[in-house]
Write a protein that binds this DNA or RNA. Structure first.
Lengths: 128, 128
DNA sequence: CTCCAATCTGGAGTGCGCTCCAGGTCAAGG
DNA sequence: CCTTGACCTGGAGCGCACTCCAGATTGGAG
């Protein structure tokens, strides 16, 4: 069974050491192992949780909701429906987010095109 | 020349009244007109600035950078190159953001598929 | 054994982007 | 006129997600 020191877990997950400690403190990441001396030892299982957290954070899920998901998962098999629903709801929000981002990106590109076809020619319009 | 009361400007721009005041206070939105009684009057020009701010905010630009853009635009025609570059740089960051979002969305969907093809069958794997 | 980099804890502090509040002013309808 | 609701100002407060700090271990390299 492979175990990772905090620095290694941070490197692999992309979270900072402080964030790993913080996630444990708020109960998002539970039951992290320790050496006899009290140092954390992260397992592959912990790492795969962190990978999931990264995915959820990057897609804008608030930490409170991740906590909810994690505690459901810890509660056992009978919560699978609720967990699935939670993720599906989140996925729908991500889709909306992607649509908005695409739309605003298009606006941005249009704006940039305005600047690009403006070489020298004094436009009647300011750059707002 | 059309003028909009604060509430109307808020409605049209999607920003709250407090946010409109805040944007003016920090100098993002400058030279907002007033009635004799001191009430704000937003012009179509102000509205189009707000539309741009909405676009930039929705795509994740920090307020400090929007301030920079706005002050460049106010400084006059000789800043068009810098403004264009600023927007182009931002657009590149948005593209990166969209790629990341898509990637993590795919992970999320995979996770959901795991839950969907799990009806009853006791998996050897927990739902992390 | 010694050293030093990594790690530990509890708690305070930070940065961002608003959001809310108190206490007053303005203006349109009745 | 009077009421009422929109609006004004300056400044305090908030929610989120970390991030930093001090002071005390820990444990592998030499």
């Amino acid at each position: 069974m492979t175990g990772y020191a905090p620095a290694e877990a941070a490197r692999r997950s992309g979270f900072s050491l402080d964030t790993l400690r913080y996630y444990e403190k708020i109960g998002l990441l539970a039951d992290v192992g320790r050496t006899s001396g009290g140092r954390r030892v992260f397992t592959d299982d912990d790492l795969s949780w962190l990978l999931l957290f990264r995915c959820l954070r990057d897609t804008g899920m608030p930490i409170a909701q991740m906590c909810r998901y994690a505690s459901l998962a810890r509660a056992g098999e009978h919560t699978v429906d609720e967990r699935r629903e939670l993720l599906q709801l989140h996925a729908a929000q991500v889709e909306e987010q992607m649509r908005l981002l695409q739309r605003q990106y298009d606006h941005l590109r249009e704006k940039i095109r305005f600047y690009e076809r403006l070489p020298g020619a004094p436009a009647p319009d300011e750059g707002r």
